[in-house]
Design a protein around this nucleic acid. Structure first.
Lengths: 225, 225
DNA sequence: GAGTTACGCTACGACTCGTAGCGTAAGGGT
DNA sequence: ACCCTTACGCTACGAGTCGTAGCGTAACTC
């Protein structure tokens, strides 16, 4: 239907698409969400304002696509050899992604707007959230094969735990950057990973937090108290 | 200076203040951040538009105050007898607060806008964030007195850990509600608390996650694997 | 070449913004 | 009681943005 309806006529300029998304991110950094106008984006992208309106119905949808493109570039889930290393790498990668001013600002603004727009919320979920969540599932699967996590018979429990982990990782990194306005540096990433794996009690007492060089790296048993 | 400058003349109507903040929250729920206009807020509050502009310079500052008032109402840190119970209570309380549509929407929008406005960011921090963060410090202090957490000599380490815990709690709850759009129900609060205290490894294997009624309640040792 | 679709450009009505000006209301100082 | 000071309500205004319509042209398919 979609391909048959558009197999004829002048095709949409792919370069215009890219220029618009780039301009959207640039304008977002410079002006912020509130002062971002579609007219300004069109001027930066050197396209007519009408072209913009022909493709995106609202400012929200445009920004979602602009941000999703950045997330797609950064989507990967390499195997770092241990659950600890995998989590730490994910934290640093997500932190680097959200530290880019365009990404963080845009994501927050879109999420705020999505509270009132179910369509927009679905769009955000499919374009950004679900693809990131898949990485959590993959990482846990690898950890289970390594014997770092127990097998779970109940798929419901497994899904719930994956959701919980995802909320914890993404939410904490987001909060660190957006609310606390502190950087996701290697030390914090390690501290947070320790917290996730071993909990408040274990991480605080294990001596792997402050001055020590964390000699155990990736193989700290849970009952280390 | 401020009190001396305003000790004479007609005082500002305190009721108008309250009406404006109430109207702001109501309009935020109904219209969302993008479509929220100060003119509309003024009409709802039954005050002149000029009165609004005399007190708040921008939409952001108005919304910050409107949200901060709600946070103030809910600020408490009761002693629930154990670290586990304290954390779980805080999660549920924060969840209930952010589940109110006005609060979550407004907070996200203001945070997004604060990325470009250092003044606004400071305002958010002092009005909302820092007051919540104090609860974390208090809870950890109590846990230390109970012997649930080890003493920390280094104040820098202690502060870093408190910040980390705060980001983890607030960020995860926020993400669960705003991004995943799932409720903070008692089961999730318990699962998340287990994760925070005992880590991924401990919480997953302890059997306190899925169907069981969690018979141990608040006294699960860290080395329960 | 004919048909179809996208693009750039211009112009437009509708709307909101934030401010200025004026007269009136509500307190404090003597 | 009187004046002074400040806040309030109301109206009106220029400035700016919004999203759309109309037209001629460019690009691609059959």
């Amino acid at each position: 239907m979609s391909p048959s309806a558009r197999r004829t006529g002048r095709p949409r300029s792919a370069e215009a698409d890219r220029a618009i998304l780039v301009a959207t991110r640039a304008a977002l950094v410079e002006l912020g969400w509130a002062k971002l106008t579609l007219g300004d984006v069109a001027a930066r992208a050197k396209v007519a304002k009408t072209t913009l309106y022909r493709r995106w119905a609202s400012k929200c949808e445009l920004v979602v696509d602009a941000v999703a493109a950045v997330f797609d570039e950064q989507l990967e889930a390499g195997d770092h050899g241990s659950l600890h290393a995998d989590v730490e790498a994910a934290v640093i990668r997500l932190g680097a992604l959200l530290e880019r001013p365009e990404t963080g600002t845009a994501l927050m603004a879109v999420l705020a707007e999505a509270m009132h727009d179910e369509t927009l919320r679905c769009r955000v979920r499919s374009a950004i959230v679900d693809r990131q969540k898949r990485l959590v599932t993959l990482g846990r699967e690898r950890a289970r094969l390594r014997g770092e996590l127990p097998c779970e018979e109940d798929p419901g429990t497994s899904a719930r735990n994956a959701d919980l982990i995802f909320d914890a990782v993404a939410g904490t990194v987001l909060h660190r950057l957006m609310v606390s306005a502190e950087p996701v540096d290697p030390r914090w990433a390690r501290d947070f990973t320790d917290l996730l794996l071993y909990g408040m009690t274990g991480a605080d007492s294990g001596g792997a937090t402050a001055a020590g060089p964390a000699p155990d790296g990736a193989q700290k048993p849970a009952g280390s108290v």
